[in-house]
Design a protein around this nucleic acid. Structure first.
Lengths: 204, 204
DNA sequence: GGCGTGCTGTCGCGGTCGAGCCATAAAATC
DNA sequence: GATTTTATGGCTCGACCGCGACAGCACGCC
């Protein structure tokens, strides 16, 4: 067999990422296994372990890719009006979660890496997301100072996040047989928040 | 060996719940193993599998106990004023999550049971929680009709839930080295929501 | 005898460890 | 300086452990 020993590690990494991507299009995270992945890319399971340190770490790289995609899915609505921008941001978040549910769930419902570096990269990308929310908030209500905007962004985005998660898991309850639409609730949240922000900016 | 065959199943169940409880006081969910549990209660692993159907199902029973505790932690603040009642509810939620972080995370971040019945019991208990929020909302703003209150309760509690989760995982970011306090953000969310509700009830 | 209850044995899983291999760096020889 | 020999280090693998899960066997109660 022309089994190429001494792979270039990056090539293997790319293969692994591609295999994960293909799998996650159809199947949830917990069905992903190190061994099946190794079979897909044609190497021994322990090879991947050596490469990534642990299976969780491997998954964290997938998460980083997910975060990049999320950033991309959100970046094209760069320069809209402030008010719809926040709603559009929330809707883009929700649609991304709906469009790639397995990757989204993996991002937030899976044990974190044991390496600190990866966690930092994640945190950094997430901070960038928050920054967009902050700037949109300040554009909408210029009276907000930095710290208030930062807090408000966290509050708002934490809320959006909660609704998206409960919506993905169909945990928002039902009304007359119909599941509560996360999109509607998100719109309500944003409307309410923006109204409250317009007329009663909390001075704290 | 005086190994008592033919256990009473309920006794075994109680032992298992107690063992899980003891374990979860100190250790996170993913360190819980069927085999170690079986060792603790003195039976073979497969015995627990037969009893519960799957390990996930066993964990779902723990989740139900958690939900009961959460209901209890919330029930004693039955008859306060409407406004602080909602804040107190959110704070009780947050404090419960802080006080039993492993149980809380297990409740929301773990794969669900494969039996429908358990999921229904969970959904039922959660609905009861929502109902408290709804009634508090209607007490605060009597102009809300049923469906509006139901939606608002979902929106609000989904938001609270998101903040609590991000707060538990320290994912709310930092400000001048200090982590964002979920309690503060929750207070901000409630204040903002209640203000918006007081002056601008969305008629949808 | 029938039935339910509990156990043993086995599978694939994630993870660890030590051995083997090969490409290149370093050293030795001419 | 060029060529051969040796040493080093990273990549890969196979064997093994404890895990959750399943199938099949053994026993005790009615």
């Amino acid at each position: 067999m022309a089994r190429p020993r001494q792979h270039a590690p990056e090539a293997l990494h790319a293969q692994v990422m591609a295999a994960c991507d293909a799998w996650l299009r159809e199947n949830p995270v917990h069905t992903l296994s190190l061994r099946s992945l190794a079979r897909d890319v044609g190497c021994a399971p322990s090879t991947l372990l050596k490469l990534y340190g642990s299976f969780s770490n491997l998954l964290q790289y997938v998460n980083i890719e997910t975060l990049d995609r999320m950033g991309a899915a959100v970046s094209w609505l760069e320069d809209a009006e402030p008010t719809p921008q926040l709603k559009a941001l929330a809707m883009a978040y929700w649609q991304f979660a709906q469009h790639e549910p397995h990757r989204w769930q993996m991002l937030f419902e899976y044990p974190l890496a044991d390496e600190g570096e990866l966690d930092e990269r994640q945190t950094h990308i997430i901070d960038a997301l928050f920054l967009r929310v902050e700037s949109a908030l300040k554009a909408y209500q210029p009276a907000l100072d930095d710290v208030a905007a930062k807090r408000m962004a966290r509050t708002l985005w934490g809320s959006v996040h909660g609704l998206v998660q409960l919506g993905l898991n169909d945990r928002l309850g039902y009304w007359q047989g119909q599941p509560m639409e996360a999109g509607d609730l998100l719109d309500q949240l944003l409307t309410m928040t923006l109204n409250g922000l317009r007329y009663l900016p909390d001075p704290s």
